[in-house]
Design a protein around this nucleic acid. Structure first.
Lengths: 210, 210
DNA sequence: AAGTCTACTGACCAAACGGTCATAGGAATG
DNA sequence: CATTCCTATGACCGTTTGGTCAGTAGACTT
């Protein structure tokens, strides 16, 4: 709608930004971050390609915007779960369940999550922060690492390096989620969550009765 | 060398194929699968781009060739490790160590491994076998799944679904390896291996003395 | 030496991409 | 109604890619 009143502009701009962001998210969910083209986002949003550049200076800026809002949402949800009352396995289960369910209900976000977690050959990506994952992903991992570290301080968790333990768990979880998204009829969420939590807390090995 | 004798041709062709494959591998290790261009492979192999199409019909065919030889190598190494004598944790540790060290010494293979394990929007990829990962990756996962299943049959491993357990472990490991490759001075391989094996066999939770 | 065979070459092509810009046209203003 | 203002447009551009093909040159055959 060209020519909207001047007062409406400050109302319209955030709306357009959200519309474009959501369209971009849908495209990412279908094609992945690499396959996401500006033209397809424009079509998805019902706008022309040039219009996108009225609200975002470049493709990269749009990607950052979308990634940030997505990670913020996930971060918040998992932080809440980790902060609940309960034993260590209880809270780990709550966080794991939250993580899996988050992507269960918002499947479109997961491919973005993966792309950010394991960035490709991105231009300045590699130079600035490619060393061990995107800052957004590192921040998310720190959530789990801090949880494990706190558990170790209270003597509830064996002394593995918390950051590496977090990485192992997060990546293992991501693998399970990716599998789930590919399955036409995946097992109940709780089943996969229980696998992770039980395997982690008690181990998978059957100890002979001593 | 144009105009080689006719008899040498059947000697030369496998050599060229290997040369091109190895050049492609080096390019993949630098730029990732998406960033791998035919021109750069040609330069790396000291050939013209057109020559590549004398030995491979398309880019896709070249990728499959490279991936297959790489997976075969990994498959063989891990199969050997899983088949050794020893207790369950011993053999799991051997396989894990083999897996990590394989990529430690041949870093160039890991990005290919990841690309195959988590394929992007590839054209007919998605249609034919995108459902839950590339067949090559599924075959590799089955290696671990069978190992876990055998352990369960002997009552050594708790009854988690073996395929999902394998997926969880493999992806967690992949995360650790990816991190290692990004680190300028990663911790000893054994340290990360011990984390995985100990966390899996005994669990990370400190059980109160009963 | 002339002719043939063929591995090899690199200029070339069409398609697809991110990004630009002159233009259009409805709302606000007078 | 005339003018101004501004969002939205889509044709267009430069670049990069996978893939092609007429032509080159060196070794074999006779």
């Amino acid at each position: 709608m060209p020519g909207t009143s001047k007062k409406l502009r400050e109302l319209l701009e955030p709306v357009r930004i959200r519309e474009i962001g959501e369209a971009a998210l849908r495209v990412v969910s279908r094609k992945g971050l690499e396959g996401m083209t500006m033209q397809e986002i424009a079509d998805e949003a019902g706008l022309a390609k040039g219009t996108l550049y009225l609200y975002f200076d470049s493709r990269e800026e749009l990607v950052v915007h979308v990634a940030e809002s997505a990670f913020q949402e996930l971060h918040l949800a998992v932080t809440e779960a980790l902060g609940r009352e309960g034993t260590f396995p209880d809270r780990l289960a709550a966080a794991t369940l939250t993580h899996v369910e988050f992507f269960e209900h918002r499947r479109d976000l997961f491919r973005l999550f993966l792309s950010v977690a394991h960035p490709g050959p991105g231009a300045d990506h590699s130079a600035r922060h490619h060393r061990s994952g995107h800052p957004l992903y590192r921040a998310y991992l720190d959530l789990f690492a801090s949880f494990f570290a706190a558990g170790q301080a209270r003597g509830e968790i064996r002394p593995f390096p918390p950051d590496r333990l977090a990485l192992f768990v997060a990546e293992g979880l991501a693998g399970l989620i990716l599998r789930r998204l590919g399955e036409t009829d995946p097992p109940p969420v709780e089943e996969d969550v229980r696998l992770v939590v039980d395997a982690l807390t008690g181990g998978i090995h059957v100890r002979r009765t001593p």
